[in-house]
Amino acid sequence: MNKEYIIIAFTENQIGVLNRITICYLRRKINIESLKVSESSIKGISMFVISAFTTEEIIDKVVKQIRNITDVIEANYYTPDQLITQEIALYKVSSKMVGEHGRVDALSRSLSARLIEFNPSYVVLEKTGTREEIEQLRDDLQRRGVLQEFTRSGSVVLHRDSLEEILHEIENN
């Protein structure tokens, strides 16, 4: 059964690693849902967070192939419930919505979103939450016909245990 699996990989900050990692998905025709690369807490080591829908059997093979990449230091896969996952999204909404709520801060409060920018033609709201929360608000605004633009960050994750312990070991060696 296809489920969401998140691979977290720590790599040398080298050109081409991103390409080599995505090839491991591509060659099995797995669509990447979201992907985020950023510097880890250790200088020179990048952290990849990649989410895709597939089976556990397949993701296990993918992660092994990712580990084989010379510049990959460590890679593991997780299900969303093993991680603390948050996303941030921006919603550009028609300002006619404000009318319905009377005041713009009332609007943002009612949607549990933060007000970023407000002008006569549109309002930009920001929301941080789980994937479901982010998508729920998007669908809701879309249904009401007021959503003009939408953009999201992809998952920002933390493991309950430290994922970077292994990196500190490397750093201390």
Binding site: D60, K61, K64, Q65, R67, N68
Partner: peptide, 8 residues
């Protein structure tokens, strides 16, 4: 010697 082969 290649871990990715084990169980592939």
């Amino acid at each position: 010697i290649d871990r990715a082969e084990l169980g592939k």
